[in-house]
């Protein structure tokens, strides 16, 4: 075949046709788009370190000449002047993030194990329901959830933050898909023949094999809870979260631009660091996130 001649090979492997022009065009467009996406993030970070004199300067600047921690100091002094101490807000946010995340990981992992590796009537229908649930915006069930939370006596308690997170659909979906393609049945089968209980197989064999998936769920769930702000379920000031108290303080408007940027910096810093550390695991998990049927 004439065409065969055109293929370049290195070590007998085919080198795919890649035009230099195409490479250039793609890199150029990607960089351009990337700059557009990164610019607001960059400005948010820069503003957090601008002194007041540089925040209110005309024309506005894209850089900072004398970076300062003043905005952070002001933010914390503003927050410590509220009657509920700042540490309490931070504790609340950390507490609901940890308890919520721990709960969802346990519940969704064991449910996903059952859905992917055990065989019982109804499991296909149940998983279909999970997929349908992914197709519904949270706002749709909001009113009845509100009624339920109040009837269950969870109004104005930590439970109101935590419990809805335990029913999170996406985590079960991701975990189930990952288990299905990453745990071979043969391993489980031989453990079953050795007489290990299902609970033990789940905990000692399946869980260690799906580390990327539970790391991913930890990151997604933690990020979601970490940014939990004002909640219609919470009235007590002592139970409000760090983001909620920041919102209250910053509602004073334009004069708080610096503090606003400082708080945004704190709130985005944690998820970004966590993502950088776990990125390869997350991508591995998302590899099996496809919807098969």
């Amino acid at each position: 075949m004439a065409r065969q001649k055109k293929l370049r090979t290195i070590n007998h492997r085919v080198v795919l046709n890649r035009s230099a022009g195409g490479d250039f065009a793609i890199t150029f467009m990607l960089l351009l788009l990337g700059l557009l996406i990164a610019l607001p993030m960059y400005l948010q970070i820069i503003n957090a370190f601008k002194p007041l004199s540089e925040l209110f300067i005309y024309p506005p600047r894209f850089y900072v000449t004398s970076p300062t921690m003043d905005n952070f100091k002001n933010l914390f002094s503003l927050m410590s002047s509220t009657w509920v101490p700042l540490t309490r807000y931070i504790f609340n946010t950390v507490f609901i993030s940890i308890v919520g995340t721990f709960g969802t990981i346990m519940l969704s992992a064991i449910a996903a194990y059952s859905l992917s590796k055990m065989n019982f009537p109804g499991k296909v229908a149940f998983f279909k329901l999970v997929i349908y649930a992914l197709m519904i915006p949270a706002a749709v069930g909001g009113i009845v959830t509100f009624i339920l939370i109040s009837r269950l006596g969870m109004m104005d308690t930590y439970w109101a933050y935590i419990v809805p997170a335990w029913g999170a659909t996406q985590n079960v979906f991701l975990m189930k898909q990952f288990m299905e393609s990453n745990i071979t049945d043969a391993v489980l089968e031989s453990a079953r023949l050795d007489g290990a209980s299902e609970l033990r197989i789940f905990w000692q064999i399946a869980m260690p094999m799906v580390k990327p998936a539970w790391l991913t769920i930890i990151v997604f769930s933690f990020n979601g809870l970490w940014k939990t702000s004002t909640s219609i379920y919470i009235q007590s000031e002592q139970l409000k979260t760090f983001p909620a108290s920041v919102t209250q303080i910053l509602s004073a408007g334009i004069a708080r631009t610096g503090e606003q940027a400082a708080s945004a910096f704190i709130l985005m810093f944690v998820p970004i660091i966590v993502f950088i550390i776990t990125q390869s695991n997350i991508i591995e998990t998302m590899g099996s996130s496809g919807m098969k049927d």
Partner: peptide
């Protein structure tokens, strides 16, 4: 195994 999640899923979703 499915039950604990199913309770929260049914109740809140």
């Amino acid at each position: 195994f499915l039950l604990p999640f199913a309770v929260f899923f049914l109740l809140f979703t």
